[in-house]
Design a protein around this nucleic acid. Structure first.
Lengths: 199, 199, 199, 199
DNA sequence: CATGAATGAGCATTCATTCAT
DNA sequence: CATGAATGAATGCTCATTCAT
């Protein structure tokens, strides 16, 4: 009784997801170079050979993971249609970011780690450069919208804050005061400065 | 006629420096795992074996480099004796930091990279944890001195800014607006807020 | 269509045996330190890497060989159930020993060689100490059974004879008068002394 | 004030002896391959380079040690002029052997170890073969003198006893019953058998 | 004569990748 | 589709030996 093409597809999808999840966990926790294909296979509960049925190489596997993650990051910048107020937008972004930090810590670990591994980066540079550009242009637009004096630099600083917090949070998730920091950022960036000045 | 102990010492010092410099450059640009001892030797213009006359292992070599760098980082927080005003102190710190970023870009590359490689970190964790703690306590003291509402979170955010900027700068030093960003930070952190508002 | 577990098991068994045999031959003829893993692989007709699928390290490989051999040595002291007469037992032992010397000359070479390599011995000491103790207690029991004056010393001397002969035989197997020596030992140790003197 | 040639010679002799002693100790305790030239130099309190002023190579150093030892072994077989009785000769030999075992344990360790290291042996084979031949012919002469039935085999067995005891003693010098074993051998080999038979 | 820094070939070990079944 | 045994190039590290002083 041969399987239908749909069943095949579903099986493939399932195996691929298992591999991606296993690889993400291993890379994030032990580093890319330190993780062997055998380790990933064991973690995924499959054989080494099978990985090569789905991914051309260890590097290709890594790229697939990153691509997944970039989609997610980009998603954070998508706003509900009716959100037009810049402060409101920033609130949505900060919410999304801090939620993601907590929920996808594995990915953020990996992301931070890869960001800075030049050998790994070569292949990803293009992909990441695009995402980076998108993010910074979004941030600049925000600072222009609220009439900041130097929107570009403000965007750089806020971008640095995002990556810096991600990095520090991931170094010691247990003790990082994620909520307090979020509050501070909401206060700094998601509300008009000197709100009561004119009264 | 054997060399005098002083001559030997000079030779040793010279070789060690050659090795440290070569290793920093290689690690920073190509990553720790991707750099082989042979590569370092070639870069330093010496033989592989010689490296092991000065450093017990590849890891020990890395640690020596990091230790060097930590001393440098700590140095940034040492103020001239007569600097008591917190804003003045912050100005000195920001100056030191941005100068160091520009002058020791190799080290900052390496630093950012290592910060996030769990396998490499094991051995360095203690060393780095100490430096981190020092830095954050310095920053907290600053925010307490200027009567910030939530000094801890402010310190976290400013710490994130430092590491985030370092990371972004090093990803593309040519195009990063280092000066503009520095000016913005001076404005944000090194002068009283709303100082002249009421006048 | 993957192989069945039984097929894999058979493959593994075969490779492992190939490795053990090749390693024994190399170690025995060229010494432990002088034999490289590459040499063993070449001798076994496989790749270096494969050895590490079966043995954790060069030392582990050596230990596996020794363990095999110790089982064999111990076997020499196992007597047929109906052998109760001590002289008869000694005859069986001498037979077993000289047969083994001839048939497993490779192992005896290795054994003699390792016995005296302190650096290699560290790991094997426990294993070998046990075997040694067993042998000497067997020999002492024999000398007690035939009412020797100083069973312990007699055991030491006979033990020395075994190892000494092994060592000399293996230095020049072609010319060693193994049979004549065996006859002499049978005469010395496997028959009552002066049995017919008084007749 | 230049030194006289005699003084030079004395200095050379002294250094050479220091090296030989240090090397013997290291080789004996840690094995030939495991001992590095640096270790020997440190043990001798001199520099590596100096060793090469006196010995062509590590192997040459080893050979020199062995040659020294062989002279010593040969010496054990030299009898006082007036010793003509074979039993008396055997007594002298056994005395010499057991005394040497105790006093030159380092050398015997090394000797036993080298005897069985084929790679090391290559170079020494000739030297050692000569010594071996001498010893066995001495022993055979003894057994001929006392009218043994199979002098050659008796010589092989006694030779085996010597090397076997040496080997076992050196494996655990603390607990080996050297004296009792010596007594037993004196009884077995250094006095007429059945001394009272004819009475 | 004496020193020890410097060399580089050689070794054990790892691991991404292949492939017969 | 799936398996895991097999490959072999690459890497960290050691150590006998050389040589400038």
């Amino acid at each position: 009784m041969p399987r239908t093409p749909e069943q095949f597809e579903a099986l493939r999808e399932k195996s691929q997801q298992k591999i991606l999840r296993a690889a993400l966990e291993c890379f994030a926790n032990n580093g890319f170079h330190t993780t062997s294909m055998n380790t990933i296979a064991k973690q995924a509960g499959i054989s080494v050979g099978l990985i090569y049925n789905y991914f051309e190489s260890k590097n290709a596997l890594l790229q697939a993971i990153i691509l997944d993650g970039c989609t997610q990051i980009s998603g954070m910048f998508e706003m509900p249609e009716d959100t037009t107020n810049p402060y409101e937008k920033m609130r949505v972004l900060l919410d999304a970011y801090f939620t993601s930090l907590r929920e996808n810590i594995e990915f953020w670990k990996l992301y931070s780690r890869l960001l800075v591994q030049p050998d790994v980066m070569q292949a990803l540079q293009e992909t990441l450069a695009t995402v980076f550009a998108e993010i910074f242009s979004w941030l600049e637009a925000y600072f222009q919208a609220i009439d900041a004096e130097d929107p570009q630099s403000e965007a750089k600083v806020l971008g640095a804050i995002f990556d810096g917090i991600g990095l520090h949070y991931m170094l010691d998730p247990e003790h990082y005061p994620l909520d307090a920091v979020k509050q501070l950022l909401l206060q700094k960036y998601a509300q008009p400065l000197h709100s009561g000045e004119t009264s």
